[in-house]
Design a protein around this nucleic acid. Structure first.
Lengths: 199, 199, 199, 199
DNA sequence: GATGAATGAGCATTCATTCAT
DNA sequence: TATGAATGAATGCTCATTCAT
């Protein structure tokens, strides 16, 4: 991708994250990377298109990270601990964009909502990411259940959703209330889960 | 509270929910309740203040509902099932404002996010709600644990956080991906939790 | 009508006449009457609406003048000479708007074209003015023909159109080429016509 | 003329006719002939110059057609009927440019007006065409008058202007009001004129 | 208490124009 | 010859805000 285009995309993503769609003005985005507003229109037909492309850019990366998270040859301990090692996840994402998700998960979620409101294709994309992840979770849980490592009474479909929701919710709540520190809580959460699902 | 002021507040809340902060213009809000834009400025110093007051109004109600959710004389089954009866929660909220949350939870959450982004005191307020709720959860879990109804190995502090996060995350994920229907999932989730925490 | 609104309308009409639709900027119009651009939007919902209202304002006046031009109790000499007394017509119009049609008939015609391109209702309105005038011309000519003052061989329908076209064309050509002075030519033209239509 | 330059000129003329001066962007013109906007600037110093050259190209053709219309060895009938055979005139013009004037005379006239407004030299050019044509008309009428085919009382100078104005006005009015169909009216107009000028 | 006129700063967007390559 | 990146000024439009009435 063209260098200027990429610069626009990254800076715009930052502005959109910090200020929302309406609050991010093309003028400010342009000035902050040393070009003029008109220059943006060389690469993006409209603010909407820029916003859309920013989100696709971000969600694609997240999709890739997400898919890399699941692997068939993990023990259940590795698997569950991996789910709750928030720090690793945050670092991976922070490296890609200039966003500190630990503090800004909140902005990130807000951005997802905004994207979904505006673009049906993003709704699909995000939906697919969650569906994929939770399906993979379910498949893994079923594997462990068959091996006798997960309580046979548990509904793995709902359990997969519960674990996914727990992860998302943890990041959201921790973002809103600094009393909760995921770096510390993460470990205990994983151990709790390992105890709870045990056969 | 003055009758006109209350009319403004309620109508504004509706507009904000339907159109977001930027999309809800004072002119439209004013016209829709039969006054003029200038009239709003008698009761609210700025659009920001109006928005803020709308959200405080809303969050206060949520706080009240949340606090009513916890009660000391519940069995563990009632307690857990209550946590995951999303439909009841939505209905309670919908009754307070004139918003159909079942369909519009998405807009509602979006609005909350916008408010939290804009006003630090609201972030604090929401943070406090979470802290309170999770603390109450922890106290309840400890009670059940002492009665032998919750596995003694489990860390109740982390477990409280996990259940709170699971609730929030469930609403978030279900808002993003309509494949997940909380009305159906809610029951199974509760049963799973009851199995998992059992001693 | 509100005083400011009328000031906007008149000044806008002048700008539209001099600079066309695209060339007339709301900013300049506003500044030239001592208000700001935003102020125009109090009275007109859009530039299009302002343009439309300007044209309706003008064409309504022209319609009134046109209709006053035809009167049943004229001799044929009065009638024909009236048609070619351009000076009187120009003065009447110039008094209403600030436009010197003698020099600017051209701009005026251009404005009509622009209006017709943009607004179907104006196309109808202008069409009706011409249709009305030429119909009235035809009725008058038929009256004179029955009295034996107009050659019975002539087709009064076409003749009415010819006289109407001659008037319009005279103003157009004289506007384009200063060699032709309607103040002088007008009289001779009328006398020529009187000779030509005579029985 | 350079081939690319001619392609630009012709395509630009088409765009200007279809979209007016303001509506025809250099980008669209350029793209439609497979070059880039910058390329146009090799051949034309500015959009204005391009527009001007388009119109000169067009007016030159009109001038040629006009001059070919007058010929010394015509009978008066041929002469007058030629003046009012609008269809032939339109066809001749349409053949020169790629414009269907029969349907698009309106846009064509609008473009002429825009050009005349913008460039004084074009106003002069058109003025000269009119002067030339009306002078030729006058010379022809004087010839017919001397032969006794035109009423000796008529002022041929004014009559020439009247016939020229009638032609122009007919096209203008017919352009504004589609009730008047020149294809039909043209014949009757010519016959009326032949009757009226007769000695 | 409330109106309505008016402001002014902001926004997305367009586009002729320039110029290094 | 021609490209394509970039500019910058302009445009229509929106809207929170002010204030005399």
């Amino acid at each position: 991708m063209n260098e200027t285009k990429e610069k626009i995309l990254l800076k715009a993503l930052q502005y959109f994250t910090e200020n929302d769609y309406e609050g991010a003005s093309l003028n400010k985005i342009a000035r902050s990377i040393g070009i003029t507003k008109g220059g943006i229109y060389h690469y993006f037909a409209s603010k909407d298109e820029l916003f859309h492309d920013c989100l696709v850019f971000m969600f694609t990366a997240i999709q890739d990270i997400s898919m890399a998270m699941v692997s068939e040859d993990m023990t259940i301990k590795e698997f569950v601990r991996g789910l709750f090692s928030f720090e690793d996840l945050f670092k991976a994402l922070a490296a890609m964009f200039n966003i500190n998700l630990l503090n800004d998960y909140f902005n990130f979620a807000y951005l997802m909502f905004a994207g979904i409101k505006k673009f049906p294709d993003l709704k699909l994309m995000i939906g697919n990411i969650y569906t994929f992840l939770i399906n993979e979770l379910e498949k893994a849980l079923l594997r462990y259940q068959q091996r006798g490592e997960v309580n046979k009474i548990l509904d793995c479909n709902a359990l997969a959703f519960e674990l996914g929701a727990m992860m998302e919710g943890a990041m959201l709540v921790a973002g809103l209330d600094k009393d909760f520190d995921l770096k510390i809580l993460g470990n205990t959460m994983a151990e709790n889960v390992l105890i709870m699902v045990k056969a």
